[in-house]
């Protein structure tokens, strides 16, 4: 890509965020409204609020719980999803139940989860898992169901072992769908990370934002909201990296199909 093309891409990427920040800055510039402080004041409070102890005390535990819950949801979702997707009877048996459970918003489960998972880190991770697992699970089921039958028959003819059949046929074939579910789950995970910290928490970004709000430290509260957004951006960038690496065969395939 030429230097000019690169510049153009960067401009396209940053144009809207820059415009939004500029609009925010201008609209709040002379604000005396207590709950809408000037953006300059919010940004001024950012460093003091987060990078003098709170990063390790609140941000890292939050992100740690998010990643633990998210990865656990991935493992459970993919594991159960491939099983349900592969076995028709299992699918018929479980589908109504799954639809029932996925419709329950995790926040209403928190008081119940507290009864058997306590009020510690385990409960918070469980809240994240309980929400993240659904898009992964349901997309995996769909992905496995939509596997190319010819490929399945071929694998059978070649007597592929169950393990390599699972890894090379089932998982790989369903991986574009799994990735779509995993992407949805990531944003749900961030929301639930915050929500789980509103119950019985002692640290975390969500917890800290609520504390700021209750203590009427409004600029600091806004810095927390901005930080949450930034965490979302960073995680989504990381996700894209992993996805493009894991699905490089798929994007290659799609590309050649389009050309051919």
């Amino acid at each position: 890509m030429s230097a000019l093309g690169l510049l153009r891409r960067a401009a396209l990427l940053l144009a809207v965020p820059a415009l939004l920040v500029a609009a925010w800055w201008l609209l709040t510039a002379g604000s005396t409204d207590f709950f809408w402080p000037p953006l300059s004041q919010i940004l001024g409070a950012f460093d003091d609020t987060w990078f003098h102890g709170r990063f390790t005390r609140d941000v890292l535990p939050s992100v740690g719980r998010l990643l633990a819950g998210y990865l656990l949801a991935l493992v459970i979702g993919v594991g159960l999803g491939t099983a349900i997707g592969s076995v028709r009877t299992l699918r018929a048996l479980l589908e109504p139940v799954l639809e029932f459970f996925r419709a329950i918003p995790p926040p209403v489960l928190v008081p119940i989860l507290m009864l058997f998972a306590g009020i510690g880190t385990g409960m918070k991770i469980l809240v994240i898992v309980s929400g993240c697992v659904w898009p992964v699970l349901l997309n995996t089921v769909e992905g496995v169901r939509a596997l190319d039958e010819v490929l399945g028959d071929t694998a059978r003819c070649y007597r592929m072992r169950p393990h390599s059949r699972y890894v090379h046929l089932v998982l790989r074939g369903a991986s574009p769908q799994i990735a779509a579910g995993a992407r949805q789950a990531l944003s749900i995970g961030i929301i639930l990370m915050v929500i789980s910290e509103m119950f019985a928490a002692g640290d975390g970004v969500g917890f800290t934002i609520v504390q700021f709000q209750r203590g009427f430290a409004i600029p600091q509260m806004w810095t927390g909201i901005i930080l949450l957004g930034l965490i979302g951006v960073v995680l989504s960038l990381l996700f894209q990296l992993v996805e493009s690496w894991a699905l490089r065969w798929y994007t290659g395939l799609r590309g050649s199909e389009r050309e051919g």
Binding site: P111, M114, I119, F199, A200, A201, G202
Partner: peptide, 8 residues
């Protein structure tokens, strides 16, 4: 101190 809602 831990934060819990009264009903919990």
């Amino acid at each position: 101190f831990t934060e819990l809602a009264f009903p919990d």
